[in-house]
Amino acid sequence: MAINWFKYSSPASFYPLAGRMIPWAMAVGVLTGVAGLYVGFFVAPTDYQQGESYRIMFIHVPAAWMSMFTYIVMAVWAVAGLIWNTRLSSMMATALAPTGAMFTFIALWTGALWGKPTWGTYWVWDARLTSELILLFLYIGFIALQASIDDPRRAARAGGLLALVGLVNVPIIYWSVKWWNTLHQGASISFAKAPTMAAEMLLALLLVTLAFWAYTIAVAMMRVRCEILESERQSNWIYETVEGLR
């Protein structure tokens, strides 16, 4: 059976599909999240170097992964919207940006709270923390640019161009910060990674990552539905199909 994927590239047919995805994604997110927390807190052993404080890793690392991955996905959607002029692609980018920014902030916040007991200070100008901070600025720039443009078409295209510029610059920024950091950093701080991570720790990490994935999908779908409703208020289909409007 061949599925006509292009059918779903129009807001009218994507809207109900997104609606059907939300409860499933939420359910997967809650289940894997609870399982991940259980494994993380009750099964995974205490780290012999860091004690209990390492358990922050179970949200810090997935949030950091999520923040970077979401930026790439967001930028790809935005650029696709710019190239093919597809409204839905740009809406997906707009819908992903706030969640990506949230995970970036969470990664920074938990990183600071993990750094205090581990390194003795809330903030170090470590390459990863610094890059994450700049990533947050890039997210905020994207959101702020789109928020200050009233014309939706211009907002979509301007966001696409900005995401493209960001995509080209992110590797350069990351690499510069890394270089800057290795040059300035004394030997005082080093990532004291346990040589082998216990299997239970890895399992908890993967479960929480899965939960964040599912959460991001669910929330992005909720937001894209709001975007569709706002931009399609002139079309008749929403008054015919959307429950609560008929």
Partner: peptide, 11 residues
């Protein structure tokens, strides 16, 4: 949390 409660629960 072995004395790390503040950091963990704030996160």
């Amino acid at each position: 949390m072995g004395g790390y409660g503040f950091f963990i629960w704030m996160s």
